[in-house]
Design a protein around this nucleic acid. Structure first.
Lengths: 136, 136
DNA sequence: CAGGTTATCGCAAGTTGTCGCAATAGTGAC
DNA sequence: GTCACTATTGCGACAACTTGCGATAACCTG
């Protein structure tokens, strides 16, 4: 079943705009921003409104094709849902970003699960702190 | 030494506006938003611009009197720096917020410190996930 | 493939927060 | 107290979304 069929089977529609956003995400580098995707899409189809891009990212996330992550404090980063999940460390001083295997975060995940019944998504938000280079 | 003196000793100034923001934070409930503080301050001194409130929160954070936390994906929450630090669990489904002792997060903090040389601030961002009540 | 339903779109306006800049006003020194 | 220095303010413009709404166009049905 194609993505379009899957989307239709959930009562949604595969529009030109939605297709373009999906394509842009395929081409985009790992973590990209909504603004970047909007620019990409609009460079070929200038009549497409940025709000349509924002809404489609959200819709595609609901449908399970896309996820977002919060790296630093401001911008939401988007990527395809099928890339391997991983955690992020962001340095509050120099802004450097570092990826860490989800495995490192798992013990905490298990603990929150057993102690609080909370199913944590530890890849969703970056962990902020001071990196090795910036440590006093 | 008063807060005003401390601020001055760091080459900063204690202005009416800064005082009002600090006062509002004292009165405010635990996690408050910049917008709420701006409303509070402006209810008494309408001529004070919201941007001044934003800038003062930032300045007071630099000075060490204030910190901010990211609870859900959108709003920044501010509070006095002297309240006990703790972690947060936020349910992505129902939006409920739960506080957890920093102690629970410490093992991960130690691991990141020894393995990556990264000094994590695990109270800074809430952990997003699904709470016990919303679990399928 | 014509017709009706309704998800989605483009547009305009609103929200929340940031930034550049000229005017203002705390501060320390005299 | 007066003065010069410069941190801070208010304002207007901007950035990054978000939302309401009437128009459009996917989609299903027959």
């Amino acid at each position: 079943m194609s993505v379009a069929d899957e989307i239709r089977s959930k009562g949604k529609r595969m529009t030109v705009q939605r297709r373009l956003v999906l394509d842009a995400l395929q081409r985009a580098r790992h973590h990209t921003t909504a603004e970047e995707i909007a620019r990409e899409v609009r460079s070929r189809h200038p009549q497409i409104d940025p709000s349509t891009v924002y809404r489609n990212l959200e819709a595609l996330e609901d449908l399970g094709y896309v996820t977002h992550t919060h790296l630093d404090d401001r911008v939401t980063r988007w990527h395809r849902a099928d890339v391997e999940r991983h955690g992020h460390l962001v340095c509050r001083r120099c802004g450097s970003e570092q990826e860490i295997p989800l495995r490192t975060l798992e013990p905490l995940g298990r603990r929150l699960r057993t102690e609080q019944g909370f199913r944590a998504d530890l890849a969703h938000s970056a962990i902020v702190g001071i990196c090795r280079e910036c440590a006093p």
